[in-house]
Amino acid sequence: MEARKLFRKILLSAAVFGLMASGEASAAGNKLVLDGSTTVGPIAKAFAAQFTKTNGVEVTVSESGSGNGAKSLINGTCDIADMSRPMKDAELSAAKIKGVNPVKNIVALDGLAMIVHPSNRVRNLSRAQIRGIYTGAYTNWSQIGGPNAPIVMIQRESNSGTQDAFKELVLKDGDTVSSRAETQASNGAVKSRVATTPTAIGFVGLGFAGRSVKSVAVDGVLPSAGAVRNGSYPLHRQLYMYTNGQPAGNVKKFVDMPKSPIGKRIISETGFVNYY
C-alpha cells in the first residue's frame, strides 16, 4: 500500500529529527526554573547565564510579573520566584495551605524612577504631585510647572510588583489610581510608551531608565545608585528571590550570587543597586 509506505517515511523522518535533537541532550533534573518579576528579569537573566557558565546547570527565566512568580512558587512550578515586592498575607496563607514555606532572599535594591519624555521641561516632582497626577487631581502638565499639555499617565497591571510598590510608596490609603491611567504589562513596555509619547509619565525600575526617557527628581533627589543606597531617594524598595524553604544546593548557590563579587558586578552593570 502506498499510504503505508508514506506513513513509514513520516515515522522515519520523525525519528531522524529526534536523533538530531537528542544530540545535545543535557543532564536531566540538573536545572533551575525561575519565574516572576519583569523588574528582576535583567538581573535574573544575567545571573542565569553566569550560573550556567560556572556550574553547568541549566537555568530558565520567565518574566511574567511578581504575582505570577508567587503563584508559581505556591503551586510548586518554579524553584525561585523573582519578586519586586514582598509576598502578601493572602499569598503567604495560600502557600501554607499548599505546604510551601516561602523564604525571602534579598537580591538588590531598586529605585522607582519616574520617567517622562525628554522634551518635557518638568525636572522635579514632589510625592504629593505624583500622587495628584495618578489620582487624577492634575490633568495638565501646566498645573505642575510643565508645558500646556494633557498628562498621559502610564501604570502597570495588577499583577505587577512595581505597581504595588508604587502604590505603597506614593499613594495613601483609600486612594485609587484614576481610571484615565493607561496600563502596560512590563517595565520595557512602559519605557517604550513614554519614550514615544511626549506628554506621558510612567514608573519603571532603576535599571530600565535609559537614555530614551528622562528620569525626574522626586522631592528634589534624582534617582541614582548612590541616592537609592543611602536612602535619600524616596521611592526605593528591595528586590527579592523567594524560595520554598531555606535554600539549599543549587538554589542556595543561585540566591547567594548577589553576595559574590561577580554577582555584585552584574547587579551594578544592569543598573540596579547592591544590597550586600
Binding site: G18, S22, K45
Partner: peptide, 12 residues
Amino acid sequence: AVSVGSAIGLAD
C-alpha cells in the same frame, strides 16, 4: 515558554 534558556535536548 521562557524568556531565556538554552536549547533543550529531546530527553528534557
